[in-house]
Design a protein around this nucleic acid. Structure first.
Lengths: 132, 132
DNA sequence: CCTCATCGCGGGCATATACCCGCACCCATG
DNA sequence: CATGGGTGCGGGTATATGCCCGCGATGAGG
């Protein structure tokens, strides 16, 4: 009866981890969701909102809104694809700089978790979460 | 380099699991966050917002807002504690009914995951997430 | 009995996220 | 070349969540 469902446990763990990573990455001025999205953009820029959404498994409208916040921060710029319907996103120089500066912080967070819980454990957890 | 951090993986898994549970529990008219919160309330009602927040590790203001949504839905009712500052929450009859009706759905979701991934795997995953 | 630090809340602000609607654009078919 | 189905987006709506500020209630000291 008192056993919470895996969903609740997962949500809770997710919130804790987000807080941890947000704090870690804060010095460069973005949160982990933004940093993560920017990393995804960097891999395929320029990319349309829909394509990006499919890659990161987020609703297109979510991508659109999150990207607009990054645009206001001057970290990404929007453009037009050949297809006039498409809106494309690319990182600005400032955006690339944020990724560069954030990388060591991000690595540090990852490493501190690996140290605390073990690389093998983290790898297995990673695989387990992907299989859900 | 292409290895996403555990945080991203966790957030992604969390979103998928929320979608799955939301769909499962939808017939009773609430989402998994609300259902989960109501289960927590049921265990200790009546309870103050702050105390509830501490129990479920959510910010008090988040609790307040989420509870107000449930109140508008007629599933919980707010009251005053002896301490005039305190706002207390309890489930209404309708609220208890939702928990009752939702329980088998919730169990079904849990079971389908256990069947697909194995009880032992789920237990380990659960423990792993709690340790984060 | 009167401060003053503390505590509990509501409300403001910002982001993340999903779903739905309507508009504009593209292209294959007739 | 005209039309209609499909596609990409923006905007509206709603929930979840955190942080911060200010107000009112409490209670420990003086």
């Amino acid at each position: 009866m008192s056993v919470p469902c895996i969903c609740t446990t997962l949500r809770s763990a997710s919130r804790r981890m987000i807080a941890f990573y947000d704090e870690t990455i804060a010095p460069v001025g973005v949160n982990i969701a933004q940093f993560s999205l920017m990393r995804s953009i960097a891999r395929v820029e320029p990319v349309t909102l829909t394509a990006l959404g499919r890659r990161v498994e987020l609703d297109r409208s979510t991508i659109g809104r999150n990207v607009r916040v990054l645009e206001k921060m001057g970290l990404v710029e929007l453009g037009r694809g050949e297809d006039q319907r498409e809106a494309t996103v690319s990182l600005t120089e400032a955006g690339h700089k944020v990724l560069e500066d954030g990388a060591p912080l991000w690595d540090g967070a990852q490493k501190s978790l690996d140290d605390r819980l073990g690389v093998e454990f983290m790898r297995q957890l990673h695989d387990a979460l992907d299989s859900l």
